[in-house]
């Protein structure tokens, strides 16, 4: 009896840090949502409380006066093109490395995987000139290509580990039925690795949607800004204009898609990230 009382008390005590940390995580996020509905005057008067009225003016301001509409559109394109291009480049290579035995397959895999550990910041300076030469500097499609290639190592790594689980007999059967290797890749392997493809694509898409630094280096004009850059711009403006409400509204616009994806694919995302880190 004595012991169980101790355990109950222990559990109560252990919950205190858990609850405190949950508050530390959730409160700033809730507060950002609340702030997006407050007028500037109210933000100064009552920065951390519930808004008096919920008005959408900040969103309208951000959307029209601060070109968030263009940035959302740019971010959507970069995310979509980047994610699709990553798959187009990664699926055939992952399949070849995993299933077609060729000399150097192990070396090639090691080369791709070790690129995950290399600080790419060194490469960004030459990449800047390379993009300038290809006329892809300050171009969202150029950025999408850079993004796609930057996520190749991780994507190939995740996809090969998914493809190992596909039984070889399925490919052999398709081959006996006269299917070409291209057909096998497209109609057998790709559908069977769909679970891995979805996981890795969600993670790549979140990565591209959130990315800031490469966009900062490779994009220059306002009309090409992605959402992360536009927000950074509003944030530095707000130091002088005090347009905090607009800033919060744009933060909310940036985070809502991520929250929705997380709500739907929470387990996939968490599993994908931990396994990516552990095996890498």
């Amino acid at each position: 009896m004595k012991r169980s009382i101790g355990e109950i008390l222990g559990k109560g005590a252990i919950r205190i840090p858990l609850i405190l940390w949950s508050l530390a995580v959730l409160y700033p996020i809730f507060w950002m949502f609340l702030g997006s509905f407050k007028s500037n005057a109210e933000i100064y008067r009552n920065p951390w409380g519930i808004p008096e009225t919920f008005n959408w003016q900040n969103f309208a301001d951000a959307w029209t006066n601060y070109n968030i509409d263009t940035s959302v559109f740019n971010s959507l394109i970069v995310t979509f093109v980047g994610a699709v291009l990553t798959l187009v480049l990664a699926i055939p290579t992952a399949y070849a490395i995993e299933r077609l035995k060729f000399r150097g397959s192990h070396f090639l895999f090691t080369l791709y995987v070790s690129a995950m550990m290399i600080p790419m910041v060194l490469g960004w300076i030459p990449l800047f000139f390379l993009l300038a030469q290809f006329n892809m500097l300050d171009n969202i499609y150029g950025l999408a290509i850079v993004y796609a290639v930057s996520q190749l190592p991780f994507t190939i790594f995740v996809l090969t580990s998914f493809m190992t689980t596909i039984p070889k007999s399925l490919e052999e059967a398709a081959s006996i039925d006269g299917m070409s290797p291209y057909g096998i890749l497209l109609k057998v392997i790709t559908p069977l690795s769909m679970s891995g493809i979805i996981t890795v694509t969600i993670m790549n898409a979140i990565q591209f949607w959130n990315e800031y630094f490469m966009a900062l280096i490779f994009l220059q004009s306002n009309e090409n800004y992605t959402l992360a850059l536009a927000i950074d711009f509003i944030s530095s403006e707000a130091q002088y204009t005090n347009a905090w409400g607009t800033l919060f509204a744009s933060l909310v616009i940036a985070i809502v898609p991520v929250i929705i994806l997380y709500a739907i694919f929470q387990q996939r995302i968490a599993k994908g990230m931990t396994e990516g880190a552990i095996k890498g």
Binding site: L89, T93, A96, A115, G123, W124, P126, I145, A148, S150
Partner: peptide, 17 residues
Amino acid sequence: CLVPTFIMFSIFTLYPL
């Protein structure tokens, strides 16, 4: 399967490094 991907990887990752 391998060449287009590796060319892209070479141009945008290996070459810049």
